[in-house]
Design a binder for these strands. Structure first.
Length: 425
RNA sequence: GGAGGAGUGGCAGAGCGGUUGAAUGCACUGGUCUUGAAAACCAGCGUGGGUGUGAGCUCACCGGGGGUUCGAAUCCCUCCUCCUCCGCCA
């Protein structure tokens, strides 16, 4: 959620940002509505304070009068305060309504994009900031997509997932299962080496938690919901991990906070079927190692670069061809100010698969989280960032497709000490 | 799941209807003293909102929400969490 003080001081920039995002023109008046509601809120607050202040003073003197035994005067005053109360409670109600309306409108506004974010509508307008320089792998004509390879080598079984749960819940088996576990360990170890503290968070979260990182309201449809307990299955570790710092005020020298977590991720992905989501391309449950940082506003973009470099290092070690995109305004997530997407080339499908998304949310999440740091200027909102490092299912798709050969599937060198084998055959 | 107890500032711990945003101790910050450190002493030390150029003034907040009252951390209702005992259990 944008800070109201930011909108107040940067109205033009907010409007400009909404334009970059392709936020519907006919809805941009919300900015001015928000500003008007804020003014209303302030004047109601001022009026209310006057009333309450008077009430407090009179109440005190009633107490004093009673002590002095001046009962009649006290009773008289009591009546007067009762009248005041009515005015106050009306103001209170009006203030509450105004605040609610203000929040409701504020929730509609997405984060303001970083100046480097290109304008644009769809993923076709994303900017390739780093393309794959070398040749893309070319496979034999009889090369198979990963779902066919999986059948051949018994790596994962989607049919079985259908039986147990439903479509989109793969069952990994044998060397496939071990490959999953190896990747998770490898990613966690790499994050640890880069200074991230490993955490294992809950996989179900409450409403407040889902709200604070921006999954609620609006994106309910993306999350599985356990109605009986009013809990949501996490779509990413970002949600529970970032919320570790909800309602926290940290010291300035606590920066940077660096956390990493492996979790399964659950996404409903309602309505997406078809050839492009075959196999592991889009599933409802997948594994992911996430990195999360809490940063000083002055250093958050430097941190973003470091996170991008970290993810890049992982892909290099896995020997996968990749490219980095800067998302355009229209493709940018609601809560993000700047996002880099990583895509790996899936040689048999001859297409790029998104495997990581690294974002700076600036104060958009911390405003909801109430995550601040102490500074000389008073308590300020910190910046949050996160990125996938890395998401598994598609990485596996790319590894098995790109590394297929008549002998079997070659395991990248860095993983071999984890898997204990160098070939799936 | 059943029965009982408890939730107060970073922590510990008073307060149980009237200048209590909240005693006291510890921790923390600044200062005095000291060659330095410790000790001792002095001072400061929650969050959010409104208002003012500013010092400041003011409102709200004692697990969350609602209520009673002229007035609530203190009384009532409700929800949540934690602890103890019983039951169940990886």
């Amino acid at each position: 959620m944008l800070e109201i003080s930011y909108i107040r001081e940067n109205r033009e920039r907010v409007l400009e940002g909404l334009k970059v995002r392709n936020f519907p023109e006919e809805e941009r008046h919300i900015v001015d509505e928000v500003l008007a509601l804020d003014e209303k809120r302030k004047s109601l607050q001022t009026e209310l304070d006057v009333q309450l202040s008077e009430r407090n003073t009179l109440s005190k003197s009633i107490g004093d009068l009673f002590k002095q035994g001046k009962k009649e005067e006290a009773t008289e005053l009591r009546q007067k305060v009762n009248d005041l109360k009515e005015v106050a409670s009306k103001l209170e109600q009006a203030l509450k309504t105004t605040k609610e309306e203000l929040t409701k409108q504020l929730l509609v506004l997405p984060n303001i994009p970083h100046p480097s974010v290109p304008a644009g509508n769809t993923d076709e307008d994303n900017e390739v900031v780093k393309d794959w320089e070398g040749p893309l792998p070319v496979l034999d004509t009889d090369a198979k997509p990963h779902w066919e390879l999986s059948d051949k080598y018994n790596i994962f079984d989607l049919e079985l997932g259908v039986k147990i749960t439903g479509s989109g819940f793969p069952v990994f088996r044998g060397k496939g299962a071990k490959l999953v576990r190896s990747l998770i360990s490898f990613f966690l170890d790499e994050a640890g080496r880069a200074g991230y503290e490993e955490v294992i968070p809950p996989l179900l979260v409450n409403e407040q938690t889902a709200y604070s990182t921006g999954q609620l309201p609006d994106k309910e449809g993306q999350m599985y919901y356990a109605e009986k307990d009013d809990l949501y299955l996490i779509p990413t570790a970002e949600v529970p991990v970032t919320n570790i710092f909800r309602d926290v005020i940290i010291k300035e020298d606590d920066f940077p906070v660096q956390l990493t977590a492996y979790t399964p991720c659950f996404r409903r992905e309602a309505g997406s079927y078809g050839a492009h989501v075959r196999g592991l391309n889009r599933v409802h449950q997948f594994d992911k190692v996430e990195i999360v940082r809490i940063e000083h506003p002055d250093r958050s973009y430097q941190a973003l670069d470091e996170m991008v470099a970290h993810v890049e290092g992982l892909l290099q070690k896995l020997e996968l061809p990749y490219r980095i995109l800067r998302l355009c305004g229209g493709d940018l997530g609601f809560t993000s100010a700047l996002t880099y997407d990583f895509e790996v080339y899936s040689a048999a499908q001859k297409r790029w698969l998104e495997v990581s998304s690294v974002s700076n949310f600036e104060t958009f999440q911390t405003n909801r989280l109430k995550l601040r740091y102490k500074s000389e200027k008073g308590n300020q909102l910190a910046h949050t960032l996160n990125g996938s490092a890395l998401a598994l299912a598609r990485i596996i798709a790319a590894i098995i497709e790109n590394n297929q050969s008549p002998e079997g599937i070659r395991i990248p060198k860095v993983l071999q000490s984890y898997t204990g084998f160098d070939l799936i055959d």
